[in-house]
Amino acid sequence: MEQEIENISDSKAIRGRRSRQIKAILAGGLVLGVGAAITLAAWNDSEFAQGTFSAGTFNLVGSTDGTTFAEHAAVGTPATLAFTVSPTQLSPGDIVYAPFAVELDSSTTNDAVVTVSNAATSGVISNLSYELIQPTAFGCASGTTGTELVAAGTALGSVPASTTFTLSKGTPPTTAGAPAFLCFKVTAGALTQGQTGTATIEFAAVSQ
């Protein structure tokens, strides 16, 4: 009888140890399962975006004949206006006329606003006045009309504030923009014999 009781006790002890081992294994399995879930969840993915940025080109050129355009970018090397009457032999009451044109060259990628201003004077230009108009075609004579940029009677060597006009770009890189035609009309007043002087006008273009 004692032997049977001992055998029963041993069996219960063995079952207890197996139960604890199973629970330990199950617990270990749960731990391993959690660890596996963390590992599988560690996915990585990336997206990249890139922008390329290049500056445009902007260049204003001028012409005294309406056909051949070139740069006159410094106050010391301006284009020389071709007046219809020699401006070196003026008498009081004479009026002389000179055409000019500006455009954005074929490389230009932006439209422009052009501001007209006085750049420099030298010598004596007193008693000389002028008018600046913007006709629809190249040329300048007594009968030329157009948009008045500077009113007749303005003292030569001065430009009213906010004297501007617009230019449109062409189709780069092959076609220049449409030119703006200009007409200078200069009137001589009570000149002093032998006086001589120059006035240089600047056309400053700003891209839009």
Rank of each mutant, 00 (worst) to 15 (best):
V31I: 11
G33P: 01
L90D: 13
V116G: 04
G93E: 10
Y130M: 11
T171E: 13
A161G: 05
S106Y: 04
A205P: 08
I38V: 09
L132T: 11
D45P: 00
A119T: 02
A101R: 01
G51D: 14
A190Q: 12
G139F: 13
L128Q: 09
T64A: 12
R15A: 13
V150E: 14
A112H: 09
F69R: 07
A137S: 14
A155K: 12
G139K: 04
A27W: 12
V186A: 05
P78F: 07
S207R: 09
E4A: 15
F53P: 07
Q195A: 08
A112D: 10
F165P: 06
A119W: 01
I38K: 01
N127D: 15
T164C: 12
I14D: 07
K169E: 02
T109D: 12
T144M: 07
I95C: 00
T171V: 08
I5E: 14
R15P: 00
A49W: 10
L132P: 04
S142H: 05
E148F: 00
R17C: 03
T171H: 05
T84W: 00
D94Y: 07
F48Y: 11
A41Q: 07
G139C: 10
A41Y: 09
D111L: 04
A199G: 04
P99Q: 05
N110Q: 06
A55H: 05
A49S: 15
K169M: 02
G33V: 04
